[in-house]
Design a binder for these strands. Structure first.
Lengths: 223, 223
DNA sequence: CTTATCTCCGCACACCGTACAGCATTCGCT
DNA sequence: AGCGAATGCTGTACGGTGTGCGGAGATAAG
């Protein structure tokens, strides 16, 4: 069984790394949908088909991009001694990284979380909930619950601003949302109109953390 | 100020209603992304540009589709005397309707929930939480929490099967997921491997309801 | 009837993912 | 050193997408 002739590699002007870099930059610059193969190749000064040398197709690019983001998250493990603080830090970190690249959020939401980094994130969640004293079954269901909440909250936040690539500062986004929500007719949606000051902050960090804590409360009281 | 000449309307082979019907059928048949303007027009036996007579662009179609689904949900109001039962019924109904049209889920997740039906759904949520005895601020934050959880859970569920248009029965999907998750290397992800029996059911109705109840628990204990 | 208005159509443009075939480069082996 | 094979990249091409523009025909108001 001889070796399959090894690879003679001629030039290698690209890398999978470089492709993903270019894709993420495009997403950040021009919003979701800007990470087309042709535009990535153009940004790299290369023919569109060259990209296919490193990644089999577009969905592989998207998946690898998500994996990279989750990998960065996993690599930045805090690891204190308070499980609740660690969990909150993890959730905040995930949100921070995703809102930093809002164009990549649809990729995370659209694909199944099958990759190694996604699994590792799940593993970390299970470990945190184990440290919280939850039984195995409770921990597994709790991980699902936390994941659902976090993803849903981020989806809601990012969907609110579908336009450009980068997100405005949180203060400005909340102000814009408050202005928009003030337009709803109070006659038709009285409670919504009355609660504008709160619902305007739905997309804020504080509300995100508040919801996470309610989730953890619900988990704790059940255990 | 004379009338603007009224409309003489020639044929009118289409309706906005018919366009949305065709779009939803395509989504159900051929999965997300199948609701292209050209395919909708073809299904209606009409030129692609005729669609633009009724809807200004593709995003309007998607938005109207989401509004229709939410409208159906809002029209089917249960309205018992137990707020918790009503809330669970509403959440289950939303999930049922979305998993019945998995191709439409990305549309809901991708767009801001600005339309009248989306606002009405929020209003109903606020009303339910008011009946639960929550203060106005708590109710508004609680509505956000519930919405985040529900959307995230549905996103997780649908993302798990990105292939065809229709979803297989829940039993089969869970079995397939269990088979897939059994492949994860226990050496690398010990907790995940040990919890496969639970994580396989993440996409099931029971788990969805369990999570919702934990969310409501967290809301109640906080109030 | 004339004329304004509306619906629908054909064409065209720019962009997308990607299959196919070719070409130059570079390595492993003799 | 020379040769053959494998590799990275390219150009071309096909079918698909959203949609802007101009025109054709039908209809109702005057």
């Amino acid at each position: 069984m001889t070796e399959p002739r090894r690879r003679p590699g001629p030039k290698r002007a690209l890398t999978e790394e470089a492709v993903l870099d270019a894709a993420l930059t495009l997403l950040d610059t021009d919003g979701p949908g800007a990470a087309s193969i042709r535009r990535i190749a153009a940004a790299l000064g290369v023919s569109p088909n060259s990209v296919y040398t490193y990644l089999p197709d577009k969905s592989a690019i998207e998946q690898a991009l998500v994996e990279r983001l989750l990998g960065d998250l996993n690599r930045a493990a805090p690891g204190g001694d308070d499980w609740r603080a660690d969990l909150e830090a993890l959730a905040l970190d995930l949100r921070r990284r995703l809102t930093a690249h809002p164009g990549a959020v649809p990729l995370l939401l659209g694909g199944a979380m099958n990759g190694p980094e996604a699994l590792l994130l799940g593993e970390r969640l299970l470990d945190l909930l184990d440290r919280a004293g939850l039984a195995a079954t409770e921990a597994a269901r709790g991980a699902y619950l936390i994941m659902s909440y976090v993803l849903g909250a981020i989806a809601l936040e990012v969907a609110d601003v579908p336009r450009a690539g980068a997100l405005a500062p949180e203060r400005d986004r909340i102000a814009a949302r408050r202005a928009a929500m003030s337009q709803v007719p109070a006659a038709m949606f009285p409670r919504t109109a009355a609660a504008v000051d709160v619902t305007a902050t739905w997309i804020g960090t504080e509300q995100y953390l508040w919801g996470l804590r309610r989730v953890l409360d619900g988990l704790s009281t059940h255990a």
